[in-house]
């Protein structure tokens, strides 16, 4: 199994899709000549040409709308919104159109559209460029939302997102692009809506996704040194969410911490906690703990930014509160 980066895994999935399906093309800001703001589409313009790698003006509404319309017509566009912060300019298209057209048309219209975007903070881009808004989209029926934490998941989930007949928000994390991991040579995909137990343990369940799943895994190593055996559940899909895997783990460990990079209020942690309460309250030995970013707009200063984001120490503190 070759080891490649998260960035390369996404590139590879895209390249294989474009090579194998003539219906597929990409639309986005600076994905062609510039080769992608995060270099995911490096070399694509040369390989696939401007008809299939379409650079756009900076105009997020029509980028998404162009994807929706083309998907309705039977094409298979993959669009890139440079960061999830910019998706706010396309909310009408994503929420009012992509998510609802199948329902409002009584099933006459489908929107098989992948919207790739990048979430998260940690690189001193301050408040408008550091948000984790995937939970907003996961709130909306009609959309699917995935957020991989490893190169393996990144490739497998992208293939599944592409094969899905619905609009899928595929949320990458800017600090994961350089992460390396093993990928099999053969073709594979990972079904949407299936969580992954990234580390087995018996004392506490840490539930997370995207970069925070990696931070949770590091925290688990340190917890092991002090004799606490943590299980780490990586949600991978936020909608549909794999409640069963969460509940099975909590039934085993009787303790849970939910870790997310977004804000705590109305967040993913709140959702996961509620599902645990609804399905496994009697198994809990302590109240579910939530770890999230500070409830503030992201500050620019490095020490202030670090104080805002969840980290290993804060996850370990949360675990300690359960014992």
């Amino acid at each position: 199994m070759p080891e490649i980066t998260y960035r390369k895994a996404i590139s590879q999935a895209l390249r294989e899709i474009l090579q194998s399906d003539p219906r597929a093309f990409m639309i986005g800001e600076d994905i062609g000549g510039y080769q992608g703001a995060y270099a995911v589409t490096r070399g694509f313009l040369k390989e696939f040409g401007p008809e299939r790698i379409k650079d756009t003006p900076i105009a997020e509404s029509v980028i998404v709308g162009a994807g929706i319309g083309a998907a309705m017509a039977g094409s298979r566009p993959i669009i890139e919104i440079m960061t999830i912060n910019f998706s706010l300019l396309a909310m009408d298209q994503i929420i009012n159109c992509a998510a609802k057209l199948h329902y409002m048309s009584g099933g006459q219209v489908t929107v098989p559209l992948v919207i790739r975007t990048v979430s998260g903070g940690g690189t001193q881009l301050a408040a408008s460029h550091s948000q984790s808004l995937e939970g907003w989209f996961a709130h909306v029926p009609g959309l699917k939302v995935v957020a991989p934490s490893t190169p393996y998941d990144a490739k497998g989930l992208l293939r599944a997102a592409y094969q899905d007949p619905n609009p899928v928000m595929y949320v990458e994390h800017s600090l994961l692009y350089g992460m390396k991991g093993d990928i099999p040579d053969e073709e594979y995909s990972i079904p949407l809506g299936v969580a992954d137990v990234k580390r087995e343990g018996s004392d506490v369940t840490i539930i997370s996704y995207s970069r925070m799943a990696q931070v949770a895994l590091k925290a688990a190593v340190r917890l092991e040194e002090e004799g606490i055996d943590a299980e780490v559940v990586d949600l991978r899909s936020l909608r549909p969410m794999d409640t069963e895997t969460i509940i099975n783990s909590v039934k085993k460990t009787s303790r849970a911490v939910v870790v997310e990079e977004g804000w705590k209020a109305m967040g993913i942690g709140a959702e996961v906690s509620a599902r645990i309460m609804e399905n496994a309250l009697e198994y809990l030995d302590a109240p579910v703990q939530r770890v999230a970013s500070a409830d503030i707009p992201m500050p620019y200063s490095r020490p202030l930014e670090l104080a805002t984001l969840p980290n290993e120490d804060r996850i370990i503190e949360a675990v300690h509160r359960l014992f």
Binding site: E51, V62, G65, A66, G69, A70, M72, A73, Q93
Partner: peptide, 18 residues
């Protein structure tokens, strides 16, 4: 939603041209 159909028209036309 006022204006919502305009970007979609662009997408339908894009598919036709493609």
């Amino acid at each position: 939603i006022v204006g919502g159909q305009l970007p979609i028209a662009v997408g339908l036309a894009l598919a036709a041209k493609y």
